[in-house]
């Protein structure tokens, strides 16, 4: 019997190792696996490379990993926003490495990793500072930049509904980076609002098929033990 449902966030992230690369779904304030991130923070693996669109705001979510100095490097498109105090502090100290990637290139590098594509030529960033040092090519008169696939050891993602096979359905714009990240990591763990019986999710509406998902954990009442 296939049953990918785990009963705790703590156990679902307990084998994340020091030095791992960790994708974290979410955009702005939407679609973040906050309880998985909190479990990862408490687990305490260090020297992480975090791949996510943003670098966290306030003290919660990705910012809590930065605050505990568990992150060596962040790969993202928009690290700086109102309230990104921990990222800015570590950046100023030289305590965190930043790889800045245009948002669409970030998404496509993740998609490529999940689809077995080694790299791709994109017009995004051609002729700009973010293409410096990268191979370029002119195709049919237009300039392109070679970007390589971006895989990860672990993906922590957020969906709304799941079943025991790991099929996932999302909520509105909370989908964002979660589906491509689900495909691109060795271990994909999904935080979901509820788990339904196998067969109850409409197969026409499943966004992430379960083959991409290793573990599913249903949310409990949110408790922040650090607070």
């Amino acid at each position: 019997m296939i049953n990918k449902v785990w009963d705790s966030f703590e156990s679902a992230v307990s084998d994340v190792k020091d030095g791992d690369s960790v994708m974290i779904g979410g955009f702005g304030s939407s679609g973040f696996p906050l309880q998985l991130i909190e479990a990862l923070r408490q687990h305490g693996a260090r020297d992480l490379t975090v791949i996510s669109n943003n670098a966290g705001v306030g003290d919660e979510g990705i910012a809590s990993l930065l605050k505990d100095r568990l992150v060596r490097k962040i790969v993202c498109s928009f690290p700086r926003s109102a309230g990104s105090v921990w990222f800015e502090r570590l950046y100023e100290e030289g305590a965190i490495e930043l790889e800045l990637v245009p948002q669409g290139t970030l998404a496509e590098r993740i998609r490529a990793a999940g689809a077995g594509i080694g790299g791709f030529y994109t017009p995004t960033g051609y002729g700009t500072r973010l293409a410096e040092g990268k191979e370029t090519k002119v195709i049919d008169g237009r300039g392109y930049v070679l970007e390589t696939a971006l895989p990860a050891d672990v993906a922590l993602i957020k969906a709304q509904r799941a079943d025991a096979w790991g099929n996932l359905i999302y909520n509105t714009a909370g989908r964002n980076f979660n589906p491509p990240m689900a495909t691109a990591a060795t271990l994909t763990v999904a935080e979901v609002e509820r788990v339904e019986a196998v067969g109850d999710l409409d197969p026409e509406c499943i966004v992430t098929p379960g083959i991409f998902v290793d573990r599913v954990v249903a949310q409990k009442e949110w408790r922040n033990d650090a607070a």
Partner: peptide, 21 residues
């Protein structure tokens, strides 16, 4: 997306993709 102030961390988001796309 960026000025010439290097002490300030840069952010680009989707601007480069929109500009060419």
């Amino acid at each position: 997306w960026a000025t010439n102030n290097d002490t300030y961390p840069p952010a680009v988001g989707g601007a480069m993709d929109l500009a060419v796309g």
